[in-house]
Design a protein around this nucleic acid. Sequence first.
DNA 1: TTGGTCTACTTGTCTGACAACTTCCAGGCA
DNA 2: TGCCTGGAAGTTGTCAGACAAGTAGACCAA
Lengths: 245, 245
Amino acid sequence: MDAAPLPRISRPHRLSEEVAEVLEKRIRSGEFAPGEKLPAEARLAEQLAVSRAVVREAVARLKADGLVTSRQGSGVYVARCLGAGVFRMAAGVLGEAHQIEDIFELRLIIEVAAAERAALRRTPADVEAIEAALARMDEAVALSADGVRADDDFHCAIALASGNPLIGRFVAFVSHEFSASRAPTWSREGIVRGLAGAAQDEHRALHVAIVAGDPAAARRAARQHLLQAARRLGVVLATPPGARG
Amino acid sequence: MDAAPLPRISRPHRLSEEVAEVLEKRIRSGEFAPGEKLPAEARLAEQLAVSRAVVREAVARLKADGLVTSRQGSGVYVARCLGAGVFRMAAGVLGEAHQIEDIFELRLIIEVAAAERAALRRTPADVEAIEAALARMDEAVALSADGVRADDDFHCAIALASGNPLIGRFVAFVSHEFSASRAPTWSREGIVRGLAGAAQDEHRALHVAIVAGDPAAARRAARQHLLQAARRLGVVLATPPGARG
DNA sequence: TTGGTCTACTTGTCTGACAACTTCCAGGCA
DNA sequence: TGCCTGGAAGTTGTCAGACAAGTAGACCAA
């Protein structure tokens, strides 16, 4: 009985979400300009016909997104730099997805650079973390188990070994956003077809180069791995000739 | 009268911000696991000795950050994928600033790669945008005016010319986050001391390489510019030997 | 066993009050 | 006349209580 999956029942948007959206649109359109004071909460509540608590929650959301700041007794102000502090992989409020090529290209650039720096800067603890993730993936291959999380952790460990916590956090962010892209490799079918084994060979080469403290080898290994990972998903990246990253 | 600038008076953190931070830490540490239900708002308010409204505002912040979702009548749940969709330059809700070296290193990696790809993929419209920003900076030098925004726009135009909208958006994000780092270059003093002029020479070299469609030259020019920009702020980057990015 | 009802609990919204803070204006004093 | 201070008005931050809307689970009857 292979019925098509039923559509998810969507919940109506909450008032606070709607208010946040209304205000965000006004801000992004420039109607409320950077640095400008928004109408008082009480006034917004009156105009939007909602309670002040709803307005406050909407403002809390906008604060989290860096669109507004507030000063007690003074008012709520549009931030000088819109969206300050927040980067999303999806563009806009409702999120248009990027092409997978774009995502892999960004990963290629940043993860190759991270691997190179990991080869130079890794600590014994970094190496341990890398090896622990590698061992978990070995185990996943041997047991035909799910190695997606271990794969994520392997890449994050390398990024952290770069010695730049910002790079570490960014790679972790992108990694988690696209964990799903690892699923075909680590599915039972992927393991049977040798996809996971191939990925693991690439991981091992990367590990060896990092432990050896050889940035050029780490760069080549990371690059090879990312290009192959993309190819396993049917994606062929156009990279600059002679490009290292 | 050259008095040292007075330190900024910092405002105490709001209760809702503190609650958001407490909850975020519990979530990121795994104490509240993905998919797990948080204690009820009323219970959290009691335990944290704050009003329920404060808890709700904190939860609204966490919702905006994608750390939690809520279902009316049921509860507030830790999201399946933490922090889905959101990356911040500062870690955590209250944000510990990163070292400026880390930030410049990330910029070096991504902007060098963007410039290289811009040289290969730029369209006539891309070139126009780059040249418009360059002209505005020329004008700022000539008039001793503020060229920070034009400088931002120049870098963003190059990133967009890479043909990868994700790279374009990320560079724009980082650029806006650190617009302040351009201020010394474009201050009256900076212009008088030739900092802006030097930056502009580097910008022109980058522009020439991109228009010429020469990725290697673009790479070198972007790298030179970023390293010099850092140096102008007293930052010397440690880069891998032979590194291109 | 299934379906319906009821109860207890939870989030969502509203209202009102007051604390803490900001801004502006008027009055008083030097 | 100019500057300072105090008070009023307005604003955000927090609290408390009430009720609406929704969920989950238990129990009972068919």
